[in-house]
Design a protein around this nucleic acid. Structure first.
Lengths: 151, 151
DNA sequence: CTGGACGTTGACGCAAACGTAAGCTATCAC
DNA sequence: GTGATAGCTTACGTTTGCGTCAACGTCCAG
C-alpha cells in the first residue's frame, strides 16, 4: 500500500518507459484489466460502486492516470482485507483534500484498526491450525492401531 | 477437534454431574442452542443440510447424545475453517463405519489439506499486516510533517 | 462484406449461513 | 381465560464480489 500512496506521485525516479505504463496518460478498460489481471466486469463493477469514475470516449470508458492510481489503491485495499465499501469510504476521504491532517488521522485509525482485525484473524487461524494438528496426531495414532490390528 | 473425536466417548473420566450436560441423554433445541450459543435457526438449518437428524417428540425436535456430538463436530469443523458442505461429507464418511481405515485416511488427508489452506491464509494475512504496518509508518511520517508545517 | 476484437448496458445467478418475519400450536402457571 | 414460553413450518431477505449470459454497436483487416 505504501507505494500506492504516491497516488500518481510527482517526482518518481525516472521510470524507464519500457511498457505501456511508462508515459501513457489514458487507458482502455482492456488495458487496465490486463495490467492488473482483473476482468472487465470487475472494472465496471468498481465503477458501479463509485470506486472509479472514468471519462467516456463516446461510449467507451477512458481511464486516466488518476483512475489507474485509484484502482491500484482499491486492489491494495482488498489485498489487506478491506471491503469495497470501506475502500470506497477511504477513497472518498482521500478526495476531500481539505483538512489533510484530519483525513490522514482517520486513515491512520482505519489502518491500525484493520491491523488489529488481521491480527485477530491470524490468531484464530493459528489456534485452528493447532487444533487440526492435534487432531491429525490423534487420527494418525488411531490409524496405526487399526493397521496393526488389521489381520 | 481432538476432544470431539471421542464422538460420545465410552469411558469418560467421571464427569461430575453439575449441569444438564452430566447425565442427560436427550435435549431440546433450546437447550442445545443455549449450550453452544447458537440460534434455533442455526440448528434447524443444520438439520436441513443433513448435518444433524434429531428424532421427533410429536412435532418437537429431540436430540440425543449422538446428535449433540455431531453438532460439536460441526462447530469444531467450522472453527477450523471447513465449510458446512465439507463437514457434511466428513460426517457422512464417519457414518459409513465399515472400512474404518479408509475413512480415517480420507479424514487425515482432509485435515492435512486444510492445514495447508490455513497456513496459506496465515501467510497472506501476515503480508497484509506487514504492508499495512509499513503504510502506517508512512502515514505517520506524513502526519508529523503536516502537523509541524501547520502554523 | 464478413468475421474478429473490443466495447457497451442490463439483468439474473450464485455461494454461505443464517436472519427475520408471518402465522400457528402446545403447554404451563396463575 | 390469559399471557408467557417454547416450538413449529414456510419462505423471502441479506451480504459480498463478481460470473455469466443476452443482445447489440463499432471499427479494422482481408
Amino acid at each position: 500500500m505504501s507505494e500506492a500512496l504516491s497516488m500518481d506521485g510527482g517526482a518518481v525516479p525516472a521510470v524507464p518507459s519500457n511498457d505501456t505504463t511508462g508515459k501513457k496518460t489514458t487507458f482502455t478498460i482492456g488495458e487496465l484489466a490486463r495490467e492488473f489481471d482483473i476482468t472487465l466486469r470487475t472494472l465496471r463493477f468498481y465503477e458501479d460502486k463509485g470506486l472509479i469514475n472514468p471519462k467516456r470516449d463516446g461510449q467507451n470508458r477512458l481511464y486516466n492516470r488518476r483512475d489507474r492510481a485509484r484502482l491500484k489503491l482499491v486492489l491494495m485495499g482488498k489485498k489487506v482485507g478491506f471491503s469495497l465499501n470501506e475502500i470506497c469510504d477511504m477513497l472518498d476521504l482521500y478526495d476531500l483534500r481539505d483538512g489533510q491532517v484530519v483525513q490522514l488521522r482517520v486513515a491512520l485509525n482505519k489502518f491500525n484498526q484493520q491491523i488489529d482485525v488481521l491480527q485477530e484473524q491470524k490468531s484464530h487461524i493459528e489456534t485452528a491450525i493447532d487444533e487440526l494438528s492435534r487432531t491429525v496426531e490423534v487420527v494418525s495414532g488411531m490409524l496405526k492401531e487399526r493397521e496393526a490390528a488389521e489381520k
